[in-house]
Amino acid sequence: MSSGPQAQVTLAPPAPAFGRQTLADRESVLGPLMLAPALVYVILLVGVPFVLAILLSFSSATAGSLDFNWVGLRNFTRLLSDPQFHRALGNTLRFMLVSQVLVMVLAVTAAHVLDAAFVGKRVVRSLLLLPWAAPVALASMAWVWIFDSTFSVVNWTLKVLGLLPGWLYWFGEPGLATVAIVTVHVWRMFPFATVIVLAGMSAIPQDIREAAVVDGAGFFRRLFHVNLPMLLPVVTVAVLFGVVFTATDFSVVWLLTRGGPYNSTHVLATLAFQRGILGANLGEGAAVALFLLPVLLVAAVVMLRLARRAEVGT
């Protein structure tokens, strides 16, 4: 990769001398110059707010005034003894873990289905992508309506099939609300994961797969001993983004339950919004949101390792 340009340079004389000195040709200037706007934007509007988020979490700042009082760890100590916060932290992890396990099982299965040749494959593939592509706030509203306490088509269907003796108030009971939220997360994330896994599967060399078939490996043996190990990096990416997207999700929970019933389904993001924006307590809201940081750090580290792998590999 790096030998190409040098070889060229030694073969051909550089461009005419009068052109060499202008800015348009000085790559040591041009490079940083072209990169600068992006860097400045990212530093000013991601870096600075990020630091501000950390600073705010140590303050008693409110939305109404511009005061900034340093209160040390008070926001954090208060949160650690707050049962609502514990619930939100637990929910964030629970929703994330449960939905990611379901997403990966569905995605690996769906990718194997889509990998096989059948009539209408292209149509199925593009239909599968709909949930991921539709704006999440609007899709969530469709689910709110599907799980409506009076008009729920889910309840009707279960009733007709004779599977439902009583009635399900989806957003009125913590357990059911959790089921609803996880359903929407799974619905939204599995198509995305499927496409990623599918991309990984098409990168597995055909001869390896054929060799496994020739050697008489059955479906599950091939799945667990050939396909999944080879898919591991790509599955990691799918899980990584799935984890980041579900752990930091705000829209689904907010639109489905507003954190209810009785604040039982709050996640960190919605609790931060409720405390920080609706409750105008910016300091405490920032402190709540900062508990997302460990998840993001892990994600960043994994990303970096994958990137390093790619760098070494190519």
């Binding site: 501000l52 988020a53 705010l56 980041v244 931060a272 949101a289």
Partner: peptide, 8 residues
């Protein structure tokens, strides 16, 4: 994510 930055 936006959920970390909307407060600042």
């Amino acid at each position: 994510p936006p959920t970390l930055l909307f407060i600042p």
